[in-house]
Computed example of a mutant assay.
Amino acid sequence: MNQFPMTVLGAEALKTELEELKKVKRPQIIAAIADAREHGDLKENAEYHAAREQQGFCEGRIQEIEAKLSNAQIIDVTKMPNNGRVIFGATVTIENVETAEEVTYRIVGDDEADIKKQLISVNSPIARAMIGKEVDDAFTVTTPSSEVEYEIIKVEYI
């Protein structure tokens, strides 16, 4: 089984969701099914069928999270010496060479990526272009409309 990288925060978020599903959602769904059963005929019982469907989604998500966690290679960059190199988990500030606009991204696993929170997947074109580079290195990202050149301003392991 292939391991895939995940940050400590990403793993904690999945563990929290798993806990919620197992200790809160699952018992709520079981109670809803039991309650719906008491209403008699199950063929015509919409509440029962809705609760069973919810149960299927919940159990599926529990299995999915457990599989992700079992295959995760959790990487804690805060415990690594910062040699200024861009690696998985690093927080990188880059500057668009043409516009001088600065942006900061954290390189995370696929499941953790959220561009609104400046979390980009290690497999995204911009992250792939940055990996292995150091402060003051320039790199180019090919976008559908053009090529954009960036310079690495700061690399943090936070």
Rank of each mutant, 00 (worst) to 15 (best):
L18S: 07
E19P: 02
E20M: 07
L21D: 04
K23H: 03
V24C: 00
V24I: 06
R26H: 04
R26Y: 09
R26I: 04
P27M: 09
Q28M: 08
Q28C: 04
Q28K: 08
I29H: 12
I29K: 11
A31C: 00
A32N: 11
I33M: 14
I33T: 14
D35E: 15
A36S: 13
R37A: 12
R37G: 08
G40A: 03
G40C: 05
E44Y: 15
E44W: 12
E47P: 00
H49I: 00
H49L: 01
H49T: 00
A51L: 00
R52Q: 09
R52S: 06
R52V: 13
Q54D: 15
Q54A: 12
Q54P: 08
Q54F: 12
Q55V: 05
Q55T: 05
G56H: 13
F57H: 09
C58M: 06
G60C: 02
R61P: 11
I62L: 10
E64D: 02
I65R: 13
E66W: 15
E66S: 15
E66M: 15
A67I: 09
L69M: 03
S70P: 00
S70H: 02
A72K: 08
Q73S: 14
Q73P: 04
I74D: 09
I75L: 14
I75N: 10
D76M: 03
V77T: 11
M80Y: 02
M80I: 08
P81M: 05
P81S: 06
N82K: 05
N83M: 09
R85V: 15
V86S: 00
F88S: 11
G89W: 05
T91F: 02
V92S: 03
V92P: 02
I94S: 11
I94M: 07
E95P: 06
N96R: 00
N96V: 01
V97K: 11
E98D: 11
E98Y: 11
T99Y: 05
A100P: 01
E101G: 12
E101D: 15
E102S: 03
E102M: 11
V103W: 02
T104L: 05
Y105G: 03
Y105L: 03
I107N: 02
I107G: 00
V108W: 12
V108K: 12
G109F: 11
D110M: 12
E112N: 05
A113S: 08
I115P: 06
K117A: 10
K117W: 06
Q118V: 00
Q118S: 13
L119A: 02
L119S: 03
I120R: 07
I120Y: 04
V122T: 13
V122Y: 10
V122R: 05
V122F: 10
I126N: 05
I126R: 03
R128A: 13
R128K: 15
A129L: 05
M130Y: 11
I131S: 07
G132M: 15
K133W: 07
E134T: 15
V135S: 06
D136L: 14
D137H: 15
D137C: 09
A138L: 01
A138T: 07
F139M: 02
T140W: 01
V141E: 00
T142I: 06
T143C: 01
S146A: 15
E151Y: 04
I152W: 12
I153Q: 12
K154E: 11
V155T: 14
V155I: 11
V155E: 09
E156Q: 09
E156V: 09
E156H: 07
Y157M: 08
Y157D: 07
